[in-house]
Design a protein around this nucleic acid. Structure first.
Lengths: 113, 113
DNA sequence: CCATATACATAAGAAAATTATGTATCTTTG
DNA sequence: CAAAGATACATAATTTTCTTATGTATATGG
């Protein structure tokens, strides 16, 4: 099962920021694969969504980049800036809060552990 | 605190469907007030978002409507159709699943390098 | 040698919200 | 009793953010 795409809307930036917080340094393609792996294919980030998001994060000063070459193939690594780290905490906390509210609103019972 | 609007994206339809499932019959303005009340003002649905959504639900056959007049003022009540009830369960379950996945994704501890 | 995977990027279009505007009625309060 | 605020609908213009499509290029496994 893959989540209907509308659910991803609004969470992509937070997902990317959190991955960068956990992994120090990642490149675009790696991020797509990591999300796919960690969610058992339920969330698949497309390149058309990811790259513009990464560029936006850079424009906002939340990440810095360094380019490396593996053979002749480019890799653009992204790393959180100090303000990016702060932003990540804010975004993750907000999303966690939002999910609690949604659980309450939708009267969703906690899953059996 | 009001959630940044991007978080609401993609969940509005599910919220509306669930409220209708719980309350049998509601009108637009009532829905905005109920959500505001249940979320302690954290989620505020704007009319510009709500009415098009309700019309879409109607076009999809997920709700039926009946118009009443309170004095001279119109109220358009919305009620789930049978397919609307099925859809509500699907949407709520999918969102619950998605939120579990997100919680896992955002709780990942840093990997040892 | 060719399909698949890796790796970036951008443009056109669609979806779904925000913001603004419009109409109108009812209620509270200074 | 006038004005402000709340109730109640609706739609249009704009913005944001995603999907889909396209483009370029290299590396690798069978």
């Amino acid at each position: 099962m893959i989540y209907s795409s509308e659910l991803i809307k609004g969470t992509l930036k937070t997902i990317v920021l959190k991955l960068l917080a956990d992994n120090k340094k990642m490149y675009g393609y790696e991020i797509t694969q990591k999300v796919k792996e960690l969610t058992f294919d339920k969330i698949q980030i497309t390149e058309g969504a990811l790259y513009p998001t990464l560029h936006a994060l850079e424009d906002e000063g939340l990440v810095t980049t360094e380019t490396e070459y593996i053979g002749k193939r480019m890799r653009k690594y992204y790393t959180l800036s100090p303000s990016g780290k702060t932003k990540t905490m804010e975004k993750v906390n907000e999303l966690a809060d939002f999910m609690d509210t949604m659980k309450f609103l939708l009267d969703i019972k906690p899953k059996q552990a």
